[in-house]
Design a binder for these strands. Structure first.
Lengths: 339, 339
DNA sequence: AAACGTACCGAAACCCTTTTCGCGCACGCT
DNA sequence: AGCGTGCGCGAAAAGGGTTTCGGTACGTTT
C-alpha cells in the first residue's frame, strides 16, 4: 500500500515562479499572445514542459462561460443502435476541442432527470439525447438552458431539433430494389408492431408497391425482432401457398431467420426468392447464406449530424425540426446472384 | 432564426441578492451547513428553486482540487466488447457522483496522446483504458498524474492495475462442461491466431483435456472470427474422418458457422455432436439452432470492477497487478438436449 | 447597568487562469 | 538634454463557489 504521494498538480503559478516571471506573462507566453519577448517565451515554455504543466481547463471554462463539453444522454447503451450514433458524435466532437460526457439513463425518467441536473451543473454547452426506440419521446422542454438535439427517437415537441433515421424511405428503397431486380410478388415479414420503426418501414414498402401498381403478397406479418420469428413466419408464408418471389424483412435478424427456413425447404435464394433486411448489421449480413442485402440506416451519420446540428445551435444558426437521414442500400447475394 | 437569447446562467450571487443575504449565507443555506437561521434557509432555498439555480460544478472542482470526473479511453468503440465494459463502468460511476468523459482513440497512439492531454487538462481524477484486443498493450507509464486502470487489454507494465477476462479459464470451463456431459472426443475450431484470446482459450481447453487424461481430436484449427470460417473448418474436420463428439469453437460466430454446417450434413446437435462457443453474444446464441451454449466473459463485470479498482486507487487502497474476472458458463441446447 | 455569551450573518480570501490596463525603461529624435 | 514612442512586463480584476474568521445584535448573567 505504498501511498506514493502523487505530485501536486503543477499550476501556472509554479511555472511563472520558476521562470522568474509573473503569471500574466507566463499565460501570454504559453498562449502565443504577443507582448512578450521571444526569449522570455522560450524560457517559460521550457519550464512548462519540464514541469509537465497542463492548463486547468476547468479554470478556463469558468472564465469563458463555456465548458467545451457536451452531454451524451443515452437510453440504450446496450443496444447496438446507439453505439454507432455515439461513435459518430464522438468523432465529430473529438475533431474539435469538445469533450463528451456520457450518461446512460436506461429509459428511466428519474435517472434522466438526475443526469440532466449533473450535466447542467457541469455546465455542458449542449446535449444530445439518444432514444431507445424510434418512437417520439417526451421533450425535455424549454427548461433546459442549453441546446438539445434528439436523435434516433425524435422529440414529441415540434420546436425541438431532432435527427432520425428515415424508416419510411428505407421501406421504399427496399421495395424499389426488389422491383429493379424483377420481383413482382413481394411479401413482408416485419418485427415488433409496437415499434414505430416496424410500422414506418412497412408503410414505406407499401407505398413503393402501390406506386408500382402492385399488390403485396398477404398482409404485413408482425412478430418480434428475432430469427426465430423470421423462421416461423416464413414457414407459415410458405404453407399458405400464395406464390412470392421476394420477402422484405423487418430487420436483418428476421431476414436471417427467413433465409434459414427457405434454405431448409430447399428454396433457392436469390433465384427463387429474394430476401432483404434492414440495419445492415455486419454480423448478420455476412454470416448469412447467401450474404444478406440490407438497408443501412446510417447511424453513424446520424450521430455526426446530431453533433453538427448541436454546433449550429450553439452558433444560433440552427432551424429546429426533424431531420431525416437518407438510408443506403447495400446489395449482397440475397437479392442479386452475382453480388 | 429566432435567436432566443438564452437566459444567462443564474449564479449564487443572483440567488443571494434576491434572497437578501450574502453569497456566503446562501452557500451555507443551500449546502445544509449550520450557522444559518431556519427561516433564512427556507427563503434562500425557495429563491434558488424559483431561479432554477444549479451550482457550478466547475467552480467547486477548481477549489476542491478534484473534478469528480474520470476518463474512459476506449480503442474499440465499434467493437461489441468494449460496450458492456463501458456500461459496467458508467453504471458503477453513475451510482456515485462521478461523471464519465468518453474518448475514442481508435487504436491510434497519436490520438491517444491527444485525448490524454485533453483529459488531464480537464483534471480527471482517474482513467480507465479499454483495449481493442486482449493482448497486452503499452503502458501509459508513470507520467500520468492520476490512477489508471487498464481493462480488456492489460498493461504490459507490472506495476499498473489491469482487469482482464480470464480466457484460459474460459477454455477450461468449456472443456469441463463437455466432459461433464459425457463427451470424450473433442475438437477445437478457433479464431484468428494473432489474438491472444484465441490462443489463451485454446491453452485452457488443452489443459483441461490433459487433466482428464484425454487427447484432443486433431490440433487447434485457427482461422478468423467469422461464421464462414466456422463452416469451412467444420467441413474439413468432417472430411478428415476422425470421429468427434464435441467441438469447442473460438467464438459464438465460429460456433454458429459450425452449427450450420453440421446441420447441412445431417449431424444432430447435441445428440451426435455438442458445440460450445465463447462470448455469450445473445444475437448469435439465441438465433442458432439449437440455441448455443456459450461462455460469458462477463464484460459488464469487468467494467464495474475497473471502476471499483479506480475508486480504490483514488483512496490509495489498491494493490496494482492484473485481476482476472471469472467467466460464466451458460448452458443451452447445443450441449444439453433438454436445455 | 455592565459584562458576557451566543447565534447569525457577511467580508474576504482562496482556487486557477485570462485579460486589461498601466508602468517603467530604453531608444531615437529634436 | 529633453521628450515622445513603443515594447515588455506585471498588478489586478474577473469568473463562481466554499470556507474562515470577524463582527453585529440580541439575550442572559452578575
Amino acid at each position: 500500500m505504498t501511498t506514493t504521494a502523487r505530485p501536486r498538480k503543477v499550476t501556472l503559478r509554479d511555472v511563472a515562479a520558476l521562470a522568474g516571471v509573473s503569471v500574466a506573462t507566463a499565460s501570454k507566453a504559453l498562449n502565443g499572445k504577443d507582448q512578450v519577448n521571444e526569449e522570455t517565451r522560450r524560457r517559460v515554455v521550457d519550464v512548462a514542459e519540464r514541469l509537465g504543466f497542463t492548463p486547468n481547463t476547468l479554470a478556463q471554462s469558468i472564465l469563458a462561460g463555456t465548458s467545451g463539453t457536451v452531454g451524451l444522454l443515452t437510453n440504450d447503451l446496450d443496444g447496438r443502435f446507439s453505439l454507432p450514433i455515439l461513435m459518430g458524435a464522438e468523432d465529430a466532437f473529438g475533431a474539435g476541442q469538445t469533450s463528451v460526457l456520457l450518461c446512460d439513463a436506461r429509459d428511466d425518467a428519474i435517472r434522466e432527470q438526475y443526469h440532466l441536473r449533473v450535466l447542467l451543473g457541469r455546465r455542458i454547452d449542449g446535449l444530445i439525447v439518444v432514444g431507445s426506440k424510434t418512437d417520439p419521446r417526451p421533450s425535455l422542454g424549454q427548461k433546459v438552458p442549453v441546446p438539445v438535439v434528439y436523435t434516433y427517437a425524435p422529440s414529441d415537441h415540434d420546436a425541438d431539433a431532432s435527427v432520425v433515421a428515415d424508416n419510411v424511405r428505407a421501406g421504399s428503397i427496399a421495395v424499389e430494389h426488389l422491383l429493379a431486380t424483377g420481383r413482382r410478388r413481394i411479401a413482408h415479414i416485419s418485427g415488433d408492431v409496437t415499434y414505430a420503426a416496424a410500422r414506418d418501414r412497412a408503410a414505406g414498402a407499401a407505398a413503393a408497391l402501390a406506386a408500382a401498381g402492385l399488390e403485396p403478397v398477404g398482409r404485413v406479418r408482425y412478430g418480434s425482432w428475432s430469427e426465430a420469428w423470421g423462421r416461423a413466419a416464413a414457414g407459415v408464408l410458405l404453407d399458405e401457398g400464395a406464390p412470392f418471389d421476394a420477402v422484405v424483412c423487418g430487420s436483418d435478424q428476421v431476414a436471417r431467420g427467413v433465409l434459414d427456413l427457405l434454405r431448409d425447404r430447399g428454396i433457392r435464394v436469390p433465384d427463387d426468392v429474394a430476401v432483404i433486411g434492414f440495419d445492415n448489421w455486419e454480423p448478420m449480413t455476412s454470416g448469412a447464406r447467401p450474404t444478406l442485402t440490407s438497408i443501412d440506416m446510417q447511424f453513424e451519420t446520424m450521430g455526426r449530424r446530431s453533433a453538427e446540428r448541436l454546433f449550429a445551435a450553439l452558433d444560433g444558426t440552427d432551424a429546429p425540426g426533424v431531420e431525416s437521414v437518407e438510408p443506403r442500400l447495400v446489395v449482397r447475394g440475397s437479392t442479386v446472384a452475382s453480388a
